[in-house]
Amino acid sequence: MGLLSIIRKIKKKEKEMRILMVGLDNSGKTTIVLRINGEDTSVISPTLGFNIKTIIYNKYMLNIWDVGGQRTIRSYWRNYFEQTDGLVWVVDSSDVRRLDDCKMELDNLLKEERLSGASLLILANKQDIQGALTPAEIAKVLNLDAMDKTRHWNIVGCSAYTGEGLLEGFDWLVQDIASRIYVLD
């Protein structure tokens, strides 16, 4: 076991992970966070700033930052880049018209140096809606195959309504971060 891994281990003793959730407005970020935290999702307003949730997930403590995606507040996203271990990009798979917007914002985000080490989970949300694009279709539109080869990424279809796919997505994310940061586990 290398010295570096010991240092990392000590530094991250609490097994904390910082997760940043972003995506266009209306994609379902807040609904997803509340759903995986087992909270009531019946009344959710568009997010004016951001929410932080601390969730114990397996043996890890996830600090989830859910930042509003309305156009006015997208410029604040950059405030949350520092020390991000995992990036969750949420897509409304039924909003075909704005997929261009969605692609552009994601591309911008991935250029960000401070996020270059973060694992990327793309959630193709709202799969319960008839006519929603499949994860494979979303991957094509977002051109994910052309992504920087060093990036760890995955795309998972999900529905914050039915809960389908959410655990699969977060399992992958947490495992991927853990294998990078907690070298000893």
């Binding site: 075909v96 997929l99 261009d100 692609k103 591309d107 694009l133 279709e137 094509k140 539109v141 977002l142 051109n143 195959d145 052309a146």
Partner: peptide, 12 residues
Amino acid sequence: ASDSGLAERKSF
């Protein structure tokens, strides 16, 4: 690649 993405989106 994004051009092909655009075509893709148009078809959807």
